[in-house]
Computed example of a mutant assay.
Amino acid sequence: MTDHVFAETGGAPGAPLVFTFHGTGGDEHQFHDFPRQVLDGAHVISPRGDVSEHGALRYFRRKAEGVYDMDDLWTRAAAMAEFVETAKGRVGATRVVGLG
């Protein structure tokens, strides 16, 4: 499993777990505060993309503008799914939302 750098804000028991995913060039703080503005008490986890494209953070590699590296995308998607499942279990969440 890939170790992800992430921001986390604990939530109220039974509140949804919300994952926010930044855009290219953003970081884990880009959307982190937004979910609690619309879902009071939400538990929020915001992972940082671990690929640097000319200094801009992303979640997966591209071969060129608009051309995804599908092998890398598959590998990183599987690692992120494992990260989400682990966090879901740790937090005890029954409702999970992803934004980004």
Rank of each mutant, 00 (worst) to 15 (best):
D27E: 09
T20L: 03
F34A: 10
D40S: 14
W74T: 13
F34W: 13
G100V: 02
A7D: 11
E28I: 03
A64H: 08
H4R: 14
R62M: 11
A15V: 06
G92D: 04
Q37T: 15
A93C: 04
D40L: 10
L73F: 14
G25F: 03
A93W: 07
R90P: 05
H43W: 11
F31Y: 15
P47K: 11
K63A: 11
V67L: 12
G100D: 08
V18C: 05
R95M: 12
G26C: 07
G10V: 00
T94R: 14
V5I: 14
A15Y: 07
L99S: 11
D50P: 02
G14Y: 08
R61H: 14
F21M: 12
V96T: 11
D69L: 04
R58N: 14
Y68K: 03
R58T: 15
P13G: 04
R48L: 15
H22P: 12
W74N: 12
E82G: 14
F6C: 08
V38F: 14
S52V: 09
D69M: 04
L17I: 02
D69W: 03
V67Q: 12
F31L: 15
H32V: 04
F19S: 00
E53H: 15
D33W: 01
A15H: 03
F83L: 09
V38G: 02
F83I: 08
W74C: 06
E65C: 01
G10S: 09
D50Y: 04
E65W: 11
F21K: 00
F19G: 01
M1G: 14
G66D: 12
A79I: 06
G26H: 06
P47V: 09
D33H: 07
G10Y: 00
G66Y: 06
D27V: 05
T94A: 10
H22L: 06
A81D: 12
M1T: 13
I45E: 06
M1A: 13
G55D: 07
T9E: 09
G98A: 15
